[in-house]
Amino acid sequence: MITLFSVDWYLISIIFFIGLYCMLVSRNMFKQLLGLQIMSKACVLAIILCGAATNNVNLSQAIAITMILMEVIAVLAGLGLILKAWKITGCPDLVKLSKLKG
């Protein structure tokens, strides 16, 4: 008999893999940020799931709120870096960043 806990963890690991795949294959910086957000959502869901499984939902909510805040900060910094890279290279392309001089 497979428990709901295992099925949830299984689905969360698939969501994490989709974000990882997006970050691995894409050259677009926006897609990289999107993959980061997807992985972060999978981690937040995993934290909430652990709290629900151990009857510690309030502690897991507090950690999840902190993690959502960190996600927002990381995405904002990433958007700033994308804007700066676009000002320099003219395109949000990761490969073009390796051609910078100076």
């Binding site: 926006f30 909430i48 799931l49 629900a52 939902v57 897991s60 909510q61 709120i65 959502i68 927002v72």
Partner: peptide, 27 residues
């Protein structure tokens, strides 16, 4: 919504207001 089903309403509301509303606007 999944967070609401896990009986974690505060995290769900935070996710809804920040990740579903603020971040898409900025992106």
């Amino acid at each position: 919504l999944i967070m609401f089903t896990f009986s974690a309403p505060w995290a769900g509301v935070f996710e809804l207001s920040v990740c579903a509303a603020l971040l898409p606007v900025l992106v």
